[in-house]
Design a protein around this nucleic acid. Structure first.
Lengths: 197, 197
DNA sequence: GTCTATAAATGGATAGAC
DNA sequence: GTCTATCCATTTATAGAC
């Protein structure tokens, strides 16, 4: 990593920085609307209003509404990866697995619209781009590692595990939003789903 | 049940029969469109076309599109109940539980749009009516009985069980449509989720 | 109960000036 | 990069004749 030590100043691209900041503003506004009215329950005009623009100006940053959804998809998985990487790995493998399961289910349950976009295939006509889809695979690798360390290294247990956690999240969101009726079952569920030793 | 033995002929209401048949036609057309284009991916005009009507005529049978969704919601749960009641109850309690789990997951996976309407709360602005919601509770009662007979009579195991099955269905639909990557895990999953005896 | 006609609003997207 | 102006298509829903 010689860059960190190099004396040569990095030439900042102020134009690119400004553009990235605007893109972030638009994404935040879109997430907020999705949270309030559902993933599809808002027109682009409301995004524009939220960031103080007119609708056509949004097209400078996103080619279409689907393109905005694609950016949200990528953004969501980046956030999940961050959250996963920030999760402490100390303690027994079983403890780490429990911790990771809570992190995941909480991540899903705290934003139903994001859960829908990232894990359910429910948006009519939307397919993530190749680049965005590639991002979606990274958190899965992390989960597989943690699960394997706790004795669930086989493919079937991994699939069982993802089904279980998305199922807990989905039930929590659909049938007890804001509560913990399914979240409180996470540890029990994880323990039962591991292969008998 | 004296009605069944009574000689008095039942006075048929031909008008009501015809109306019910038309309602059924409309529902079938709507399900077909939902299957092809997603739960929300079609306008009422296409339903009308499919049944050989003009759009305004649909309003004779349904007060609004939401009202049509509500009828689909009720129809879906009625179908699920039928399917559940038609499932043989012979064999050991564990065998019956496995069988019921397959019936449920297959029911979900065979029609993603229906799964979305019945089990995910993903349709912006839609809430089932009280009557329709009441129907949704009946299959759950059946499931609870079968699960209890197999040793999962506690509330936590029932919640775990519904999360597990909807999770398997959801993963199957989202990540391996038409395949059996998650469906083939049903028996293992059910065995592991039962409380240790 | 079905139709024509139309309201009334929505909402994604583009053209072109500044 | 942002704007005004506008297009154009869609879509739910209603009024009222037959």
């Amino acid at each position: 990593m010689t860059e960190e030590l190099a004396a040569a100043p990095v030439r900042r691209d102020r134009r690119a920085e400004r553009r990235a900041a605007t893109v972030r503003e638009i994404l935040d506004a879109a997430w907020r609307l999705a949270d309030e009215r559902g993933l599809t329950g808002w027109p682009l005009k409301d995004v524009a209003d939220a960031v103080g623009m007119r609708t056509p100006s949004l097209y400078v940053y996103f080619a279409s509404k689907n393109d905005l959804y694609d950016a949200m998809f990528a953004d969501g998985y980046r956030r999940l990866l961050e959250r996963a990487e920030a999760t402490p790995r100390n303690g027994t493998p079983r403890e780490v697995l429990h911790r990771a399961a809570h992190v995941f289910v909480d991540f899903c349950a705290e934003d139903p619209a994001r859960f829908q976009l990232l894990f359910l295939r429910t948006l009519p006509g939307f397919e993530p781009s190749e680049q965005s889809y590639a991002l979606a695979l990274e958190p899965l690798t992390l989960i597989a590692e943690i699960l394997a360390a706790a004795g669930g290294g086989d493919a079937a247990t991994l699939d069982l595990y993802t089904a279980l956690l998305t199922g807990l999240a989905s039930q929590q969101i659909s049938n007890d939003p804001g509560g913990d009726r399914w979240r409180r079952l996470i540890d029990t569920a994880v323990d039962r789903i591991l292969p008998p030793s």
